[in-house]
């Protein structure tokens, strides 16, 4: 357990003494802020129209029309930037030969994998916390319902676990950071896309399986404000799968 935190400390240090964490956070926040701003513009235009029509606004709800699309946008941005956070975790160690230090120190492979995963989760959590400035700023002008927002952020956090564990797996496969990033893009976009292709397919069994595998459909439930055991189970089991595969790959490197 202590070993894990030694490694977490080192990884966090490396994230924050190099520009990676800052650049990723800046790009993430800039793009999601911009998309959020667009969403608000659209929403305020819509409210104007509604007001002119003197209608009561049954469907116009700030969570549904601003946060839901914004958070879905945010998850797309995450797919694009998460691999950049994870790509270095194992690939860099292999390239710099520092894996020889880790593997000959009294620390188990499980501890190494978990240490790296927890460190990158902390960075991710920080990104999410920073992005909370959007609802806070908006809450000054408009009353916001915080509970669906909480569910949405929980969903994003759990989904991040899947992104990062898959990225960790991709990084363990190679000593080249770019290859690691491309592989994790592939895995994440694949998991994201399963659902649309499932909807198009006529076969209902395939549709059901694909629907269950899809990250997007599960996240959508959370973003709607629904915390389901189905979703939580899905995210956590996918994360464990990613970590397990990482462990296997790191272990198998020793035997080559």
């Amino acid at each position: 357990m202590r070993n894990i935190f030694v490694l977490v400390g080192k990884e966090l240090r490396l994230y924050f003494i190099s520009p990676i964490a800052y650049v990723v956070a800046m790009v993430f926040l800039a793009v999601s802020d911009f998309l959020f701003y667009n969403q608000i513009r659209f929403y305020s235009g819509l409210s104007m129209q509604m007001m002119q029509m003197q209608g009561n606004m049954p469907e116009l709800n700030i969570h549904e029309s601003v946060f839901r699309p914004s958070l879905m946008n945010m998850s797309i941005i995450l797919i694009l930037i998460m691999p950049l956070l994870t790509m270095r975790l194992f690939a860099e160690e292999k390239k710099g030969r520092t894996n020889e230090l880790l593997m000959t120190s009294p620390i188990t492979i499980t501890e190494i994998v978990l240490g790296k995963f927890i460190a990158v989760m902390v960075v991710y959590l920080l990104l999410l916390v920073l992005s909370l400035h959007l609802p806070f700023v908006l809450s000054v002008a408009v009353p916001i319902s915080w509970s669906p927002l909480f569910a949405s952020y929980l969903g994003l956090f759990l989904m991040g676990g899947v992104f990062l564990s898959m990225g960790l797996f991709a990084s363990a496969l190679t000593d080249n950071q770019i290859i690691a990033a491309v592989i994790s893009f592939g895995i994440l976009i694949g998991l994201w896309m399963v659902s649309p292709s499932g909807h198009n397919a006529g076969d209902s069994a395939f549709k059901e399986v694909a629907g269950y595998l899809s990250l997007m459909s599960h996240l959508d439930g959370f973003v709607k404000g629904l915390i389901s055991t189905r979703g939580v189970t899905y995210f956590i089991s996918m994360t464990c799968l990613g970590l397990f595969m990482t462990h296997r790959v790191v272990e198998s490197d020793r035997w080559k």
Partner: peptide, 20 residues
Amino acid sequence: MEVKRRIGYLPETPPLYPEM
């Protein structure tokens, strides 16, 4: 684990983190 605790190892390429 017991062996690793008792060994100091300098590999062919020193395992250094250049940012530290």
